[in-house]
């Protein structure tokens, strides 16, 4: 019974119902079934972290998850971060722009989604805590220093935003 299975999933607040092969990975499901192409593929074996999304609010690698495993779950991807009415960037996205936290930008959605979880759990992380949280995301362009600066900047702005 390798027949297709029904997947009912909420992605970025929107409910989808699809019939998929059990072997379909979540990242392929997001990209090719739902046409949410912002989640990128870097290695398909769980090392690079490019395909990081939030599953029920927690970061995970969508190449190491089957689409059928998110039946009933809520998935959040990079596409959800921008303000839907104004189009404004999320403070974390804006911080990556302002602190030059990207070059080719292919790994960036994964870093940003991981950062969303980090700053939700720890609004004022130390450099060591940032490094520990992001050590599962590979970047080949930046050497990470500007990413570190971006996360620090985002954390500061988010804290200030909350206080304001």
């Amino acid at each position: 019974m390798t027949d297709k299975q029904r997947v009912c999933v909420t992605v970025n607040g929107r409910r989808y119902e699809r019939w998929v092969e059990p072997r379909l990975t979540l990242v392929d499901f997001l990209r090719h079934e739902l046409h949410l192409g912002g989640t990128h593929v870097g290695c398909e074996h769980g090392i690079c972290g490019l395909c990081t999304v939030l599953i029920d609010g927690r970061s995970g690698r969508s190449c190491l998850t089957l689409a059928v495993q998110v039946d009933g779950a809520e998935v959040t991807t990079i596409e959800s971060l921008r303000d839907p009415s104004t189009g404004a960037l999320h403070p974390i996205q804006q911080a990556f722009v302002d602190a030059h936290g990207l070059q080719c930008g292919f790994c960036t959605p994964g870093f940003i989604m991981t950062t969303v979880e980090l700053l939700r759990e720890n609004p004022d992380p130390s450099d060591e805590e940032i490094k520990r949280a992001l050590d599962g995301n590979l970047c080949r362009c930046t050497g990470y220093q500007s990413i570190l600066a971006s996360v620090r900047l985002a954390a500061r702005r988010l804290r200030e935003g909350r206080e304001a």
Partner: peptide, 21 residues
């Protein structure tokens, strides 16, 4: 100047059209 890059809004939102998109 350290201007922010034209490239970046499309990249941080995941909307840049990489080949697999």
């Amino acid at each position: 100047k350290e201007v922010t890059r034209l490239e970046d809004p499309g990249l941080v939102t995941g909307t840049a059209e990489f080949i697999d998109n």
